Amino acid sequence: MSIQHFRVALIPFFAAFCLPVFAHPETLVKVKDAEDQLGARVGYIELDLNSGKILESFRPEERFPMMSTFKVLLCGAVLSRVDAGQEQLGRRIHYSQNDLVEYSPVTEKHLTDGMTVRELCSAAITMSDNTAANLLLTTIGGPKELTAFLHNMGDHVTRLDRWEPELNEAIPNDERDTTMPAAMATTLRKLLTGELLTLASRQQLIDWMEADKVAGPLLRSALPAGWFIADKSGAGERGSRGIIAALGPDGKPSRIVVIYTTGSQATMDERNRQIAEIGASLIKHW
């Protein structure tokens, strides 16, 4: 067993022997301040990774656009098919120029040779490549099948209805392509620590998230040296922004954090800054 596999296998073990965790309302004060600064709703939840206990939450059962955070769930569904012998990570998928959609920095470079399922998941999570996500959605049967996968996990809230990039439209009061912070946090925890996926697939999923290259201005910008984070960000229309993450000190994750916002007129930089400040408060009061 590799060191990384050992780390993920012992996530519940280490967490069980940690000192009790206590909620700190100071972080919620910052979440509410972010709402004021952005002029928009902000949803927040913080779960203990081992027990699933909610440590703090704000608007945990209000719907927010998922945006690209759905790509972690998508690759979880792909990995479940791999575990069941219905898919192979090494299978190569070929596609054409007509398949390319807006923001496809990886797939646009491989029109000639195609990409493997493993490479597509890596591109979808680490670079948020939209064509990679659409190609992977095709392998599982489309958005409705991802929703069905989530329902089978016990998540009857999260739903995907459309493809990239239309799913980022974020129309107010439109339930399409949305989740709730509580539902997303619980589902992410199941994917990373539950028995739904094999140990190898859980490790692969967290490795992809740990290698995320496009979430630097968010929670990662607030992390002290030595902290662990595996995350996936999302951005959408109407001032929408979000991030889902597993993080913790001492090089291992111990909490799940989900943050979503929508309806702001603020710039992307300002949305990023507010999420980073929430992260800084979380870490300060850990």
Rank of each mutant, 00 (worst) to 15 (best):
Q204H: 11
G154E: 09
R118E: 15
D161T: 06
I259W: 03
L120F: 04
E35W: 01
D207G: 14
G194L: 09
T179H: 00
L192A: 06
M180H: 14
P253I: 10
W163I: 10
G142I: 01
F6H: 08
K252Y: 12
N168K: 02
A40G: 13
D155T: 01
M67C: 13
R63D: 03
T193E: 14
D48Q: 08
I93N: 03
T178L: 02
P181V: 07
K284Y: 15
K232T: 01
D212R: 04
N130A: 03
L49G: 05
T112M: 10
G226S: 11
R189N: 11
D161K: 03
F13L: 12
F228A: 09
G52F: 05
G43S: 06
G76D: 01
S264W: 04
E87C: 07
K30N: 07
R255K: 12
A211Q: 14
D161E: 08
G39M: 10
V117R: 01
A276V: 10
W208S: 03
F6E: 06
P172E: 13
M115P: 01
L247E: 02
I54T: 11
T187M: 08
G76E: 01
P143K: 03
E175Y: 13
W286S: 01
R238F: 14
C18T: 12
R241P: 00
E270N: 09
F149N: 06
R91N: 08
P181E: 00
G236P: 00
R202E: 10
C121I: 05
N152K: 13
G251K: 14
A124G: 07
P143T: 07
D207W: 12
R118T: 14
E270K: 13
V8D: 09
N134W: 02
A276L: 08
T198C: 10
A84G: 13
D155Y: 01
M67K: 01
A245I: 02
Y260W: 02
L135W: 02
A246E: 06
H156D: 14
G39A: 13
I171P: 07
S221K: 13
M184W: 01
I3N: 13
R202C: 06
R92K: 12
K144Y: 13
L199V: 15
T147D: 09
D48G: 06
A215S: 09
G142C: 04
P253N: 09
M1Q: 01
A34T: 11
T198P: 07
K53H: 13
P65Q: 03
K32H: 12
K190Y: 12
G248V: 01
R63G: 04
G142E: 05
R202A: 10
A280K: 15
L47E: 06
W208Y: 06
H5E: 09
L111G: 06
S96Y: 11
V101L: 08
I171A: 15
T107G: 05
T262R: 08
K109C: 09
I3A: 08
R271E: 05
A34L: 08
A123R: 01
K232S: 00
R162Y: 03
